[in-house]
Simulated assay, not measured.
Amino acid sequence: MAAAAAAALLGTAVAGCGAGGAGGAGGDGAPAPGVVRTSPIADRLAKLPAAVDGAKVVVGRADAPRTVQVLVDPRCGYCAKFEATGGEALLEPVEGGEVRIEYLLASFLDRDGASGSVKAVNALRASVDAGKFAEYQAAVFASQPEGAFTDELLLRVADRVPGLRGPAFDRAVERGSYAGWVGEAEKAFEATGMRGTPAVLVDGKPVGTKDGSMFDAAAFARTLGAAGIGA
Rank of each mutant, 00 (worst) to 15 (best):
A5I: 12
A6G: 12
A7S: 15
L9H: 09
L9N: 14
G11Q: 07
V14L: 13
A15V: 13
C17M: 12
G18L: 08
G18T: 09
G18H: 05
G20Y: 05
A22F: 12
A22I: 13
G23I: 12
A25H: 09
G27A: 04
A30Y: 00
P31N: 01
P31W: 03
A32G: 15
G34K: 15
V35A: 15
T38W: 03
P40F: 00
P40G: 02
P40S: 04
D43M: 06
A46Q: 04
K47I: 00
A50Q: 11
A51T: 15
A51V: 15
D53V: 15
D53I: 08
K56G: 06
V59C: 10
A62D: 11
A62W: 02
D63I: 03
V68Y: 02
Q69G: 07
V70W: 08
L71C: 01
Y78E: 07
E83D: 15
A84S: 12
T85D: 11
G86N: 09
E88L: 15
E88N: 14
A89C: 10
L90M: 10
L90D: 05
L91F: 06
P93F: 04
P93I: 03
V94S: 06
V94W: 08
E95Q: 12
G96N: 10
E98W: 06
V99P: 08
I101R: 11
E102R: 12
Y103T: 11
L104I: 02
S107G: 11
F108K: 06
G116Q: 04
A120I: 03
A120F: 05
V121D: 08
V121R: 11
A123Y: 07
L124E: 09
R125S: 15
R125M: 14
S127D: 09
S127Y: 08
D129S: 10
A130I: 01
G131P: 02
K132V: 01
F133W: 11
A134S: 13
Y136D: 00
S143Q: 00
Q144H: 02
P145T: 04
E146T: 12
F149N: 02
F149C: 05
T150N: 06
D151T: 10
E152I: 04
L153R: 05
L154C: 00
R156H: 01
D159G: 07
R160P: 02
G166F: 04
P167Y: 01
R171F: 07
G176D: 08
W181D: 13
G183H: 01
G183T: 03
G183E: 14
F189A: 03
E190A: 14
E190C: 03
E190T: 08
T192F: 01
G193F: 00
M194Y: 08
R195N: 09
G196A: 05
G196M: 08
A199P: 05
L201Y: 01
V202H: 04
G204N: 00
K205I: 04
K205S: 08
P206G: 04
V207H: 05
V207Q: 02
V207K: 07
T209C: 10
K210A: 15
S213V: 03
S213M: 01
M214S: 01
D216C: 08
A218P: 10
A218M: 10
A218I: 07
F220Y: 00
R222A: 14
T223D: 02
A227G: 05
G228H: 02
G228I: 02
I229H: 03
